[in-house]
């Protein structure tokens, strides 16, 4: 029997807000009503993503492009179910930033979450800022 928990069981340690003492701006994303500090801005390498754990057990993929723009989308690859979008290669297509899933290479628009290779598929996006 293979079943994926819709909301992963919270056996995982609670996500930490970056340790006090680290200075500099944080990458923050908007969850229903407040801004969640996911990590130091410095942890984001331009053109590469990282995954962050959300308080509800969900996962977000965070990216930064070479112009400094930030993006946040659901980390779960809807085609395979694996939480790997943060590990994909990024690029731009007709001026729009995207990430290509590292598993089967479908591309997702980083601003809208729309899959560029299958119009019926979209992943969730989050509002994100550095502050």
């Amino acid at each position: 029997m293979t079943l994926a928990p819709e909301t992963p069981a919270p056996q995982t340690p609670a996500p930490q807000t970056p340790a006090p003492g680290t200075t500099g701006p944080k990458v923050r994303l908007r969850l229903t009503d407040d801004w969640f500090a996911a990590c130091d801005l410095g942890a984001l390498l331009p053109g590469r993503g990282v995954a962050a754990l959300l308080p509800d057990g969900g996962q977000v993929a965070l990216f930064r492009d070479r112009g400094g723009e930030l993006y946040a989308i659901d980390n779960r690859d809807p085609f395979t179910g694996a939480a790997v979008l943060s590990r994909g290669l990024t690029g731009s297509h007709r001026g729009r930033p995207f990430v290509a899933s590292p598993l089967l290479k479908q591309r997702f628009d980083l601003t809208t979450g729309q899959c560029l290779d299958d119009e019926t598929v979209r992943v969730a996006t989050y509002e994100v800022k550095a502050a």
């Binding site: 293979t2 994926a4 928990p5 992963p8 069981a9 056996q11 995982t12 340690p13 609670a14 996500p15 930490q16 807000t17 970056p18 996911a38 990590c39 942890a43 990282v50 995954a51 962050a52 754990l53 057990g57 996962q59 965070l62 779960r76 179910g81 694996a82 939480a83």
Partner: peptide, 20 residues
């Protein structure tokens, strides 16, 4: 430092990765 499951919970295993 890049070899972590989550940037904000480096040692938390990815709950999606499971085995039978």
């Amino acid at each position: 430092a890049r070899f972590v499951s989550f940037v904000n919970a480096p040692d938390a295993p990815d709950p999606v990765v499971g085995f039978v």
